[in-house]
Computed example of a mutant assay.
Amino acid sequence: MDSLPHTKLVVIVAFPNLPLLEVAGPGDVFFHASKAIFEKTGVEDTYHVIVIAADGTDQILTRSGITIATPVKIDDINQPIDTMLIAGYNFENSMIESSDFYNWLADISAKVRRIGSICVGTFALAKAGLLSGKNVTTHWDKAARLHRDFPDVHVDSSQFFIKDGNIYTSGGVSSATDLSLALVEEDYGREIAVTVARHLVLYLKRPGYQYQFGDLLPVNEYEQGVLSKIQEWMVTNLHRDLSVEQLAAHSNMSPRNFARVFLKETGLTPAKFVEKLRVEMARKLLVESDLSIEQIAEKTGLVSMVSMRRIFLRNLMVTPSHYRRAFKTTLNEVELT
């Protein structure tokens, strides 16, 4: 495969059954960046994007049922790869057990200017040994697993994307466009990146953090544990005093023993769990009800609008009003014809 000398070659290595947006998002960003650069400078083909199948096949079937042709193989490329992105890592795919792919990935990473991952593609980079000691992100729902499987990797699931040296990792699927815009800005400056973002109706830097999308509460693995016995009662009594003493009394336990068992089962102190439970219920009401923020604060035990704002910022890094604007349905505000 030949290309013009000035062209930055972007290679997306795609696993089977990946979300289409992980390929389409970066593809559109780099295409429109090339167009914007041509209109400004007259230089053509600034970026060239190709998709390569991680399993070496001629096509990739995406999760949505749309097939992406992948006729080009890595051996067909005879020019330097500027940027490589790993997309659609599949936990159930048998190829992830083969060391050949990860050996290849580790080898080629030394030959590209920068390498990155989209969503859970971070796991592929980690398995190739490229993330030891690195600061990275991934989809919020898989962050705990990444930390468990690769304890020498520093995982921050709050960010949409993170750069550490020439390693770039991104969060959920839509973060592929956040990362791609950042790469364009790094290459050609803010003006070009803003032009692309405006054309695609995107934020150049999306407000907020991944925290606003994730679940705050840990998965309860103890069906007969202390939490299972009192969680429903806690939900219906969020407006009341839920101190350790009150929770322990409801569980017929001493406060000291209750706190010890609760921390062991959930990984959180009772006070921290109650706070997160209140935030979870408040965010549900922000989206699903028309109650005012003051009413929601009172109903969930967050006391006041000021207190609720402070606790939301601590847990979600967004304010209650911002969260409501971002996630509340707009169907009743749009005239359907």
Rank of each mutant, 00 (worst) to 15 (best):
L216C: 09
A297N: 02
A248D: 03
A271P: 01
E275A: 09
Q212C: 06
Q210E: 15
T319H: 06
V235Y: 11
Q210W: 04
V274G: 00
R240H: 10
L302M: 07
M234W: 04
R309N: 10
N237T: 10
F262N: 01
D215R: 12
T319P: 02
P218K: 06
M281W: 09
Q231K: 12
M308I: 06
D215Y: 13
Q224H: 15
V226R: 04
A248C: 10
G267K: 03
V226P: 02
E280P: 06
K229M: 12
V219I: 13
I293C: 06
E275D: 11
L238D: 05
P320T: 05
V261H: 02
R310D: 13
K276I: 00
I311N: 00
F262Y: 05
H239E: 10
W233N: 13
M281N: 03
Q246H: 10
P218H: 09
L277R: 03
T300I: 03
V261W: 02
L227F: 07
G267N: 08
L291D: 07
E221W: 07
T300S: 01
Y209D: 04
R314N: 14
R309K: 15
A297W: 00
M253C: 10
P255D: 06
V226H: 03
V244M: 05
M253R: 08
S321G: 12
Q246D: 10
P218M: 09
Q210S: 15
F273Y: 15
S304A: 09
Y203N: 14
L302Q: 01
V303M: 12
H250P: 00
I296D: 02
G301V: 05
L316I: 08
N315Q: 14
S321K: 15
Q231P: 00
T269Y: 08
K299H: 11
N237P: 07
F258E: 01
M308N: 02
S289E: 12
A249I: 10
T266F: 04
R314F: 08
H250Y: 13
S321W: 09
K284N: 11
A249Q: 14
I293M: 07
T300E: 02
V306A: 13
V219Q: 12
Q246S: 11
V274T: 11
L302K: 00
E232Y: 08
T319I: 07
E294I: 12
